[in-house]
Amino acid sequence: MNAYNFAYLDEQTKRMIRRAILKGLAVPGYQVPFASREMPMPYGWGTGGVQVSAAILTPEDRFKVIDQGADDTTNAVSIRKFFERTAGVAVTERTIEASVIQTRHRIPETPLRADQILVYQVPIPEPLRFLEPRETETRKMHSLQEYGLMHVKLYEDISRHGAIATSYAYPVRVAGRYVMDPSPIPKFDNPKLESEAIQLFGAGREQRIYAVPPHTRVVSLDFEDHPFEPTKAEHDCDLCGAADSYLDEVIIDDAGGRMFVCSDADFCRGRREAGQSGAKAGALS
């Protein structure tokens, strides 16, 4: 018999987290403080996302965890096992089958539906932090919508690199109000932040929860003469041939051989099962 309460956390804690989630949904992009608990895993391993998942999981849910797009990396496997053991929920690697998806660093390529929830693991929730170290001041800047500083960061990028070099955790403005850190997803994924699904963000160490409700306008910050571009490697997937998915560059031998493959493992597999193939489709078989 399972010695844990359902999904590890006690019911009081889950209620507290749910209240934070509801507040976050009511004020899109606003960072709601919550009393983050010690979890049986170190900070930096997704404790914020895990607490959010624990608070929203029901016994009927089907749970998927991805780390950098893959279901089989250490972080993803351990979190999936954690909830299999503490909540006994069904798990899946298929995006379309999952009702709750916890993610680190990616948004699945397959568009999410209204009956799905995406839970992000967030290391540093405050987008203004690197330029303004004082929490009192960043809070005031959010409350007064003083966001000029965000553009200073982008300005610095262009002045140093000739283009906006921020390629992940690219800041967005949510519902025309709060500037939000979308967690370290590649900026390629930013357009997918406008979704039918509920998106919840949990930062365990920093004790913040925030949310983007379905169908919310999410605009990536930019300059008129340097507009936002959701870039990716200029290549097709070598396995499935997809031209529109985010790619990982993989070194395949000691001679410098490499290939580009979809970062979203489920998406790539789905395409290959449907008969699509890329330039080096035979290489890994």
Binding site: L131, E146, G148, Y155
Partner: peptide, 27 residues
């Protein structure tokens, strides 16, 4: 000053704070 931000960024901050969104003009 913001010591970690370039001279141009330091000068441009107020412009961006009042809504200037054209990099070329700010520079």
């Amino acid at each position: 000053l913001r010591m970690g931000v370039s001279a141009g960024g330091n000068i441009g901050e107020r412009l961006m704070a009042v809504g200037e969104r054209h990099y070329g003009r700010i520079r």
